[in-house]
Design a protein around this nucleic acid. Structure first.
Length: 329
RNA sequence: GGGGAGAUACCGAAGCGGUCAAACGGGGCAGACUGUAAAUCUGUUGGCUCAGCCUUCGUAGGUUCGAAUCCUGCUCUCCCCA
């Protein structure tokens, strides 16, 4: 993987660059749609490429490992072949599931022992085998196993958790360096900054992550319940420390506003479930605020078309206009 | 023509003497959603001058301190036999 910084904004920390992988080039700042189990929910792979112009998508180690399983993925020749997505793929390590499926897992020094949400079977995810799994999935960008701690975690918990994540990183990195890609194209490995909402921990973590010398770095453990202002503060602190010449990936963020703010703080990569999940649930962001398309109260707020027959910006987001589009199709 | 079953809120459907303005689904209305256990989840859903009162379980009467629940007439619906 190669990252070239093209230009940097003079009035903010925003920058534009290019990430080059064996599956193609990514223009940053970039939003990466989430395709947890190999497909981006509600979006056909053709639409993803031709309409949405996604340049990279996510997959999830935990979910792909459980279903369809590594045997099938390996037999297919990796996820790119399995889902016919020939552009870059980044896979999350399962670190988020340590957080979101916290009732179904046990954390030890060794790793995270999950009880499958599908059939209750037990599966140990270690920093090493998670790298191995991502080798088999064939992700262009492999994420380190981390613990994504809850946003309201206290200092002691967050510190202990961060230190565990650091130790896991060393193990994961070692394993990554001692293994080879399986399908002939190169893979890279991103470590993840933790430290919760505590400035000193964030600094400490960012320094540790920077010292590893990876080709790109991620910021995790944010947008997990803390106020947006706290998130911005943490990102600002971390970005002071993470190298300028490597892409910075803010995991799990976020709203359009969050994304713009964080771009101005120097973040290059984002992913979030929000557009696909909220799309499926009928929620849309408009200049008039959040709109739930299923709610009738929006119906009369906009007429389908302006008198001259064109749609204004607000109309584009109105329920009436969307209905108009469907009706005319 | 003979025999049987049933009519419950927007719809489906429980309830079969008091704790029933009436379970549960659906639908409606509103809210939530940030590295996806999510085409999901939560709240609400007779009216009002709202810690109370009023009207509602096909319809008209009756029994009872008290009826969606028991009795009688009527009106519809469905099933079986001829």
């Amino acid at each position: 993987m190669k990252f070239s910084l093209l230009t940097t904004d003079l009035q903010s920390k925003a920058r534009a660059g290019l990430i080059t992988t064996d599956h193609g080039t990514i223009e940053t700042p970039i939003f990466m749609p989430v395709g947890t189990v190999g497909s981006v929910k509600g979006v056909h792979i053709n639409e993803l490429e031709k309409d949405i112009h996604a340049q990279i998508i996510l997959g999830n180690t935990y979910h792909l490992y459980l279903r369809p399983g590594l045997q099938i993925l390996e037999k297919a020749g990796g996820l790119h072949k399995f889902n016919s997505w020939n552009k870059p793929i980044l896979t999350d390590s399962g670190g988020y599931q340590v957080f979101s499926l916290s009732d179904n897992r046990k954390l030890t020094e060794e790793g995270a022992l999950f009880r499958s949400h599908i059939d209750g079977s037990k599966h140990l995810f270690t920093p090493e085998n998670v790298v191995e799994t991502q080798r088999i999935i064939g992700a262009d960008i492999i994420m380190a196993l981390d613990e994504c701690a809850p946003g309201d975690a206290d200092y002691i918990y967050t510190k202990t958790s961060m230190e565990l994540t650091h130790r896991w990183l060393q193990r994961g990195m070692k394993h990554f360096k001692s293994t080879e890609p399986k399908y002939g194209y190169s893979q890279t490995f991103f470590p993840i900054v933790q430290g919760g909402a505590y400035t000193d921990l964030r600094k400490q973590s960012a320094e540790f992550i920077a010292s590893v010398g990876a080709e790109g770095n991620a910021i995790g453990g944010l947008s997990v319940g803390e106020p947006a202002e706290v998130m911005y503060e943490m990102v600002a602190v971390v970005n002071e420390i993470l190298p300028q010449d490597k892409p910075r990936y803010l995991m799990g963020v976020g709203t359009p506003e969050n994304i713009l703010e964080n771009i101005s703080l120097g973040v290059d990569m984002f992913d979030c479930v929000m557009p696909t999940r909220n799309g499926r649930n009928g929620m849309v962001f408009t200049s008039n605020g959040i709109m739930n398309m299923k709610n009738k109260k929006w119906e009369d707020d906009f007429s389908p078309l302006d008198p001259d027959g064109t749609a204004s910006v607000d109309h584009i987001y109105s329920k009436a206009y969307v209905r108009h589009l469907f009706a005319s199709k």
